[in-house]
Simulated scan of single mutants.
Amino acid sequence: MTVRVLIADDQAIVRTGLRVLVDRDPELTVAGEAATGEEAVRTARTECPDVLLMDIRMPGKDGITATRELLAAPETAAVRIIVLTTFDTEENIFAALDAGASGFLLKDTDPAELRNAIHVVAAGEALLAPTVTRTLIDAYTSRRTPRLTGHTGHGLTEREGDVVRLVAAGLSNAEIAGALSISPTTAKTHVNRSMAKLGAHDRAQLVISAYRTGLADPP
């Protein structure tokens, strides 16, 4: 199935570059462009993209505010948002994760890596850019909420707890299945049930929940 991608950036040259990047993948298609946060929200509501590439710094409503607004609305809550920025500061990463973004990438990311990231986020498979974000999750969880060491986590079964720890370690459903000697379908079911119990809308939020509740130790 073709993944529909909305591009939001205030610089026309960046939007053009991202459009070319997306168009080069036969399994991706551009669903539209936006130059401001307001336009990103409006276009996402009308075009219903699968993935939104969201710049942080835009005039008026910034990308973080637009991300939070889109994911809080039922009609756009399913949109997977990848935040793109030239600044890899802790503040930006924390803000993106708090807003519910599914991924965080720098604009100088390799084109092939960005295309892969779009596919990964569309499938809900993993937390993106581990080299950027996972080194900061420990600081994020320790600053925002004390970890509850030993907490079993909102009614999770023992097997669901095992699955959540493997998700936090960065494993895909297929890798989890291999590690636990279960089928990929069963692994996906455990992941989905764990997300529901922990109130996580995607795997990125599931990882954060795992660290915050003490189910997994931050890297």
Rank of each mutant, 00 (worst) to 15 (best):
V3W: 04
R4V: 01
V5T: 00
L6M: 15
D9Q: 08
D10I: 00
D10T: 05
Q11R: 10
Q11A: 14
V14P: 10
T16K: 10
T16I: 13
T16H: 12
L18W: 06
R19K: 14
V20N: 15
R24W: 11
R24K: 14
P26L: 09
L28K: 03
L28H: 01
G32A: 00
A34G: 06
G37Q: 08
G37V: 08
A44H: 08
R45S: 10
P49F: 13
D50Q: 08
D50F: 01
M54V: 09
D55S: 00
D55C: 02
D55L: 04
M58D: 03
G60K: 01
G63L: 09
T65H: 06
T65E: 13
T67V: 08
R68F: 02
E69K: 12
L71G: 09
A72Q: 10
P74Q: 03
A77P: 03
A77Y: 09
R80H: 11
I81V: 15
I82A: 06
T86N: 10
E90M: 08
E91T: 14
A95W: 09
A96V: 02
D98H: 15
D98E: 12
S102F: 03
G103E: 01
F104Q: 02
F104G: 03
L105P: 13
L106H: 02
D108N: 14
D108Q: 12
D108A: 07
T109N: 03
D110I: 11
L114E: 08
R115G: 05
R115L: 00
V120I: 14
A122T: 03
A123P: 06
G124L: 11
G124N: 12
E125M: 13
A126M: 15
P130L: 00
P130G: 07
T131N: 13
T131W: 11
T131D: 14
T133E: 12
R134L: 14
T135K: 15
R144M: 03
R147F: 02
R147C: 03
L148R: 15
G150Y: 04
E158F: 02
G161W: 04
V163R: 07
V164N: 04
R165L: 04
V167W: 07
V167N: 00
A168F: 05
A168S: 05
A169D: 14
G170I: 09
N173K: 13
N173G: 12
E175F: 11
I176Y: 09
G178L: 10
L180I: 02
I182L: 04
I182E: 01
P184D: 10
P184F: 05
T186A: 00
T186H: 02
A187T: 08
H190L: 02
H190R: 09
V191R: 09
S194W: 13
S194C: 07
M195H: 06
M195I: 08
A196H: 11
K197F: 12
A200H: 06
Q205W: 13
V207C: 05
I208F: 05
S209E: 15
R212F: 10
T213D: 14
G214N: 01
